[in-house]
Design a protein around this nucleic acid. Structure first.
Lengths: 229, 229
DNA sequence: TTTGAAGATTAGTGTAGCCTAATACCCTGT
DNA sequence: ACAGGGTATTAGGCTACACTAATCTTCAAA
């Protein structure tokens, strides 16, 4: 017990919010986020990250093990989840209320998430009926900071013969998303894994009566839930 | 002809956007905006303003006459009007689509106006049916940068006996706005000036069958259009 | 016509965040 | 056991934008 706890925590800067989000995503499978991974994700130089890591760990938002990487403290995790909630609520709102398509929402939400108030987000969530998933199928953390963790497999890993439901598209590139939507590959779609070519080859799936061939790169972005027969 | 014109103009910073808006408001009656007026409006120290004035005039957004003040160039005016459009569209949107009341919208719009894209603003405007006035009655500039200029008089200046329509409330303080709304003093309200006490005394008005007494301070914020009998 | 106060500007600092170049650390392959 | 490559960190700089203290302009009143 040594860290001084300041009651009226200073608001986080945009930058800090982005760092926390990145770290959350990079550590979602457990383990540490490394300096260079964070740098790559934020598209900044590694030394900039080192500097920020120092500040963030002084603020108590992250735990920094030099030369190893960082993890979020409970406080940092809370802040990150709040940002993710904002982002995803915004995505749903833009899609449902303002006619954005799922390829374009990410960029807009990215700009807005730092500016919206808690109140606005909750009004949006309310107007939307407290949505649980964003347009890409990612779960939306609750206002209390809880987030669903599902056991999903990518389409590239799903066993041939399996019946699965596409739950989440782990990408934010507008063109790829447009293509996927056009192929009918959106969250909620039920598919059967028909075949997979060796050496990281494409996966063939059946959607209803149609058949689609999905390359390895895209297949790795499509997270599915197995239908335990 | 000496100023170099850079085609892909660098995006303005938040700060710059705020300066331009302030200067626009301070020069709306013509003349120069002074350093200290800008400083007061932005709640920063005058030397900070001096520094920014230098940069803004180098960028060609303002015309700076040392020790006199500044004015917007056409380019600066365009940028300012764009910000004001954003702000006012946001206010209408928050009010009509998300249940904000007119006392609370200003603060929220102030945060959002720097983050929204042009596209989002136009979608909101579209969803609202291209509104022409914000919730306080202020005219919304068009996307092309035109703004209506009305000839209005404050309630403190309207002649006793006149029939007027309240058009615009020139304030953004939530409590005052709540009070005014509760008194029925909102844009569109028709009133008759019944009486005014001397020495900056209150103005008495009739709204339909009701009578209201409005102090000089508030009366000065209520902009009315005379009903030319 | 001088002078003094109000207001504007310059000088000098500080912080947040970014950068590049230089250095330190860690680990794996020999 | 150690050398070298890859990664992290430190050192030193830069820009934007705020601040205070010091100085300069302007203008109006005596």
């Amino acid at each position: 017990m040594s860290t001084s706890i300041r009651s009226p925590q200073p608001p986080l800067t945009r930058s800090v919010e982005d760092y926390l989000k990145s770290i959350f995503h990079l550590t979602s499978q457990g383990g540490f986020a490394t300096t260079s991974d964070i740098a790559a994700m934020l598209e900044i130089a590694p030394p900039s990250v080192s500097g920020m890591m120092k500040r963030l760990s002084e603020t108590g938002l992250i735990e920094h093990v030099p030369y190893r990487g960082v993890q979020l403290t409970p406080q940092g995790r809370r802040a990150a989840l709040q940002m993710i909630r904002r982002h995803r609520i915004l995505e749903v709102y833009l899609t449902r209320q303002l006619g954005y398509d799922w390829g374009d929402v990410h960029v807009e939400a990215e700009r807005l998430e730092h500016a919206v108030s808690e109140k606005l987000i909750e009004r949006m969530a309310d107007a939307l009926g407290e949505p649980r998933y964003d347009p890409h199928g990612a779960p939306i953390p609750t206002a209390a900071g809880e987030i669903e963790e599902a056991e999903l497999v990518t389409l590239a890993d799903a066993p041939v013969g399996a019946d699965v439901v596409l739950r989440q598209v782990g990408d934010e590139n507008a063109e790829r998303l447009h293509y996927l939507a056009q192929q009918g590959l959106v969250p909620g779609t039920r598919l059967t894994i028909v075949d997979r070519q060796p050496f990281n080859g494409p996966t063939t799936v059946r959607i209803g009566a149609d058949t689609r061939v999905v390359g390895q790169e895209l297949a790795g972005l499509l997270w599915c839930e197995g239908l335990s027969a």
